[in-house]
């Protein structure tokens, strides 16, 4: 198993099944909110919108409030609120499982691998860890340690990589799982929000990249 992982990490050429690209396109459509406002003859395209499929709770009587009612506070209200988030979480995670099986991660990896060097100054072998870090934190952290242990990345490159992974960890998975409370009221859809988070992660990591480069040069000067 370990050997296999190693081989997989070294093998930069990733093959993406056609359904992997299809999964990627469907996923982007659903999470971007692109079809949320479709009307008229094209309104059937709403079926490709995540929030449309998640739907809405019914209201109780003529109060206009759902089962959470109004005016709740404290732990009890927090609990009810968490319950109200369960349906979207259950549904989205079910979808992601299907997309993952279809090969969406390989498609992401194919897209990311060639741009890793300019983006973060990392070798293409870090692609698997990077893609994993978008949807979960634990596997990516272990892969990152392995990359260093295998001599694929230097200590400084690991620091830069972790500076990317750590803030806003697992942006795709966590946007769904943890921000579910806010997403119904935000003025931007989930997709654009994830993109902005990833952009900020890149800015921060590159700042660390510059900082490490500067301090390295300083040390070199001291030695000389």
């Amino acid at each position: 198993m370990v050997e296999l992982e190693k081989k997989e990490m070294r093998d930069v050429k990733v093959t993406v099944k056609p359904q992997g690209w299809i999964a990627l396109i469907i996923m982007l459509c659903m999470f971007s909110g692109l079809f949320a406002q479709m009307s008229g003859p094209l309104s059937f395209l709403k079926v490709l919108d995540l929030n449309t499929l998640v739907g809405a709770f019914g209201t109780i009587g003529d109060t206009g409030k759902n089962f959470m009612g109004a005016g709740g506070v404290g732990a009890r209200d927090g609990f009810m609120f968490a319950l109200s988030l369960a349906p979207s979480c259950v549904f989205a995670m079910g979808l992601i499982e299907i997309f993952t099986e279809m090969g969406v991660m390989e498609a992401f990896r194919k897209l990311f691998t060639p741009i890793l060097r300019p983006l973060l100054g990392l070798p293409g072998t870090a692609g698997l860890a990077l893609v994993n870090s978008l949807n979960g934190s634990d596997v990516a952290a272990i892969l990152t340690k392995k990359l260093y242990d295998d001599g694929e990345i230097t200590d400084d490159e690991r620091t830069i990589f972790v500076a990317f992974q750590y803030p806003g960890s697992a942006p795709i998975g966590n946007m769904i799982a943890t921000q579910a409370a806010l997403l119904p009221v935000t003025v931007l859809a989930m997709g654009p929000l994830i993109l902005v988070v990833i952009l900020c992660k890149l800015i921060g990591a590159n700042l660390v990249r510059l900082y490490l480069k500067a301090s390295k040069n300083k040390n070199k000067k001291k030695e000389a």
């Binding site: 732990a75 927090g78 609990f79 369960a86 259950v90 079910g94 992601i96 799982a177």
Partner: peptide, 29 residues
């Protein structure tokens, strides 16, 4: 596959989100 993922989602909702929500709401209180 959907069922496997959906069960994970339920687990996240109840074991990860719910305790955090209770904490968050109590902190606000």
């Amino acid at each position: 596959l959907f069922m496997v993922g959906a069960k994970k989602g339920w687990n996240v909702a109840i074991n990860t989100i719910m305790p955090a929500m209770v904490l968050g709401y109590v902190l606000v209180q």
